[in-house]
Amino acid sequence: MSSEELIYAMALRSCPMIGDSTFRKMLAIAGSAKEAWELSGKELSKIRKIRKSVTESLGNPVYLEKAIQEIEFCEKNNIKIIYALQEKLPGLLSECEDAPVFLFQKGNFDREKNNISIVGTRNITSYGRKFVHGFLEAAKEKSIQTISGLALGVDTCVHEESLHFQIPTVAVIAHGFHLEIYPAKNRKLAEKILENQGAIFSEYSSQQSFIKENFIQRNRIVAGISPSTCIVETAFRGGAISTATFANNYNREVYALPGDINHKYSQGCNLLIAQNKASAIVDIAKLITDLGFQQTKEKQLDLFEDFKDYSKLDKDQKSVIEVIIKTPGIQLEELSEEIGIASYRLLPILLTLELETYIKTNSSKQYFPI
């Protein structure tokens, strides 16, 4: 773990005024963390909006020593250091422009599972609890992995219900692993997550102090890992709104549970739906279908098993829908390569199949069977 490049990278990232964006700009110019550490003031001036304080901290051995101490802390406490320039971040997080350079991991993250982020208010109601329970019960056989923030309320419900249905669950916390798990009420829950093949992530090192702004930053990771985010209950200005905003900015699917217009913790969800920033969750079975979880291996074996009449389809249409059934969520270029039909020829075929309700597409231009 303690390679020279990792030490220099951690030292560089711990310098004052060097955030994730500046770090990446510096490495783009220097080529490596070690070379970035040795950049001259003239070379640094090539980086747009670089601060003078950055040049003052570079080369200071104090930060190299801090990096070594951090690596030793992680090794001692069974914490994996994921360095984004050497290893892919979990889920779809690497696709996010503002993804962290470093992510610290405890436990197991299954990269083969279908990730779904579920968040909401700390003031969950029986309505929200019933939805979380019902959704996870229905989706438990779909090889899913839930992502949430270990906060009280909806997050806690998501983690607990996941454990109940033996679904791996992942918590993203807003502080380093040197601190006791926050909130204190969920310390036992955090232990259970790790005991049951789940994971806990943090972007904060053991040398960083906790500030309340960390919660918002944490939410971008929750949204960034998964292709879809569900907002269960939230007020107009609830923290879950920021998670939905991040997910929308990442061009991910967002779903919200509608509720009573007079209920405070349904108003945020209703607003997201009204502003077309989230799709309304109207039925658990439909949600699972929309998420692309509906196809089991057994179902895929018999491509034309359901009531759809495929006899009227021509050869190309049948080829297209066969691949979409086998690979739900496939995108245009992948479909073109798989079938051997040019993209411009596929588009009218796909449109016809969609209009005749054989398939559907989402905002990410992925195609699913109906």
Rank of each mutant, 00 (worst) to 15 (best):
F307Q: 12
N276S: 13
S311P: 03
D309A: 00
I7C: 08
E298H: 11
G176Q: 07
T169A: 04
I193S: 01
D20N: 15
E203S: 09
I325R: 12
N248G: 15
K185D: 12
I7K: 14
V323A: 13
A9K: 06
Y344P: 03
D155Q: 01
V119D: 05
T229W: 12
K264T: 11
N219Y: 05
D20C: 07
Q69K: 12
A67I: 00
E97K: 13
S206K: 05
I216Q: 14
V119H: 07
I321N: 00
F102S: 00
E38R: 14
Y182W: 09
I221D: 10
K80G: 06
Y83D: 13
S226H: 00
I50S: 08
D110K: 14
E112V: 10
L64D: 09
M1N: 13
R111E: 15
Y8I: 07
E5R: 00
L350E: 03
S162Y: 05
D283N: 15
A280Q: 11
I284F: 06
S3W: 01
R51E: 12
N123W: 11
Y127Q: 08
K142C: 12
I241Q: 11
I341S: 04
I71D: 04
E4G: 05
E72P: 04
A190E: 14
E38D: 14
Y255G: 03
F135D: 05
A280R: 11
E87R: 02
I339W: 08
G268T: 04
H133G: 03
I273S: 04
Y255A: 04
E95N: 10
L85V: 09
K315T: 12
L335F: 02
L64K: 14
N251W: 01
